[in-house]
Measured scan of single mutants.
Amino acid sequence: DSWHDTVDGIELELHGADEELLKLAKELLKRGVSEEEVRRIIEELLK
């Protein structure tokens, strides 16, 4: 799946992010949310 590559990229960027955020990112990508949107959501949550 192409979203796996996206998640791997996000995981590299979010090496400090907790497991729950990564699960959320994967779930959003699986549901068709764009990579940009996922990054934006996670950045908001990390604030």
Rank of each mutant, 00 (worst) to 15 (best):
I10T: 05
K47R: 11
G32H: 01
K26C: 02
W3S: 14
S2V: 10
L24M: 07
A25L: 05
I42R: 00
K26G: 05
L29F: 02
L29I: 09
I42C: 02
I42H: 00
K47M: 14
V33S: 03
L45D: 00
H4P: 13
E11G: 14
G9T: 13
E20V: 07
L28Q: 01
A25T: 03
I41M: 04
K26D: 08
R40L: 08
V33W: 14
G32V: 01
E36L: 09
K47W: 10
L14S: 04
E19T: 09
K47G: 10
K26A: 10
E20H: 10
E35Q: 12
R39G: 03
D1H: 12
L12S: 08
G9I: 14
L29V: 04
I41F: 07
S2D: 12
G32I: 01
I10Q: 08
G16K: 05
K23L: 05
L21S: 02
K47P: 04
R39D: 02
K30R: 11
R39W: 09
D1M: 08
L45W: 10
S34Q: 05
L28M: 07
L22G: 03
L12N: 08
G16P: 06
V7L: 11
D8N: 14
L46N: 03
S2K: 13
L14G: 04
L24K: 03
H4Q: 14
K23Y: 07
D18T: 15
G16F: 10
E44K: 04
E13N: 09
D5W: 05
E36P: 07
G32T: 00
T6N: 12
E37M: 05
A17P: 04
D5C: 05
D1K: 02
E19G: 09
E13A: 02
L28N: 00
L14W: 10
L45K: 04
W3Q: 12
V33C: 07
E35P: 15
E19V: 10
D5V: 10
S34P: 13
E13L: 12
E11I: 15
S2H: 10
E44G: 07
V33Y: 15
D1N: 13
E11V: 15
K26L: 13
L22C: 06
